[in-house]
């Protein structure tokens, strides 16, 4: 069953390994993706070695700063293999990763899956 907030949604995958990223950058990418698909529903599927719902710590700002779009956050799995399995046959999913050096990024690169790295906050925090 598809929820109203998931209908005609912009679907994206976010890999959360625990690196702090620039929330604004990620949010802008999600809004751009949604706008291109003429929708205000965003479904963000998370792959993370962090347990559920611990990974949300890294999405707090994103969730709290968004008031204009529907946002559904779903947990997909903890390993790159699960992510690959999900992406198989799905060419229209944008993939974002928080750490370009993570095992997820390595596997995605090896398999030729396109992804974007969200700029890190590291070194910018006080």
């Amino acid at each position: 069953m598809t929820l109203v907030v998931e209908r005609n949604a912009y679907h994206a995958v976010l890999v959360v390994t625990g690196k702090k990223v620039r929330t604004g950058s990620l949010y802008n990418r999600l809004l751009r993706g949604a706008t291109l698909r003429r929708t205000r529903n965003i479904v963000l599927r998370i792959y993370s070695p962090l347990p559920r719902p611990k990974y949300i710590e890294f999405l707090r700002d994103l969730i709290q700063n968004n008031i204009s779009h529907a946002l559904t956050v779903t947990y997909g799995g903890s390993s790159p293999e699960e992510l690959l399995l999900y992406l198989r046959g799905r060419n229209d999913i944008d993939v974002y990763v928080d750490d370009g050096k993570s095992s997820f990024a390595e596997v995605l690169a090896r398999e030729g899956v396109k992804y974007e790295i969200i700029p890190s906050l590291e070194g910018e925090e006080r």
């Binding site: 929820l3 907030v5 205000r40 998370i46 949300i56 779009h69 529907a70 946002l71 559904t72 956050v73």
Partner: peptide, 13 residues
């Protein structure tokens, strides 16, 4: 079925 962890219902919904 698997459930989402978090849903923010948008103004348009």
């Amino acid at each position: 079925e698997p459930l989402p962890d978090y849903i923010y219902v948008g103004p348009h919904n």
